[in-house]
């Protein structure tokens, strides 16, 4: 199973599950990161964390620890 955190910059994938700490998962789902959403990892911050992703036409920054709980396919 691949995680969002495993994607390289420029890679796209479809979200399979959103897990992890419940506030974070809720916020992500409210923002439209749900099963079936296409996400692209755009870049990694200069210090390696967080990562920037594109979904539904906007940009979001999230920490790797959060991205590790999102599985993609």
């Amino acid at each position: 199973m691949r995680h969002l955190a495993d994607l390289k910059p420029g890679e796209r994938a479809r979200v399979a599950t959103v897990g992890g700490e419940s506030d974070a998962a809720r916020r992500l789902m409210d923002l439209g990161l749900i099963r079936g959403t296409t996400v692209e990892v755009v870049r990694t911050a200069p210090l390696g964390d967080p990562i920037e992703v594109r979904l539904r036409g906007f940009m979001l920054s999230l920490r790797r620890a959060e991205a590790e709980h999102i599985t993609v396919e």
Binding site: A24, R27, L31, F58, M59, L60, L62, R63, E66
Partner: peptide, 8 residues
């Protein structure tokens, strides 16, 4: 708390 932030 989640550190999820939009980059506008």
């Amino acid at each position: 708390r989640p550190m999820i932030m939009e980059l506008p």
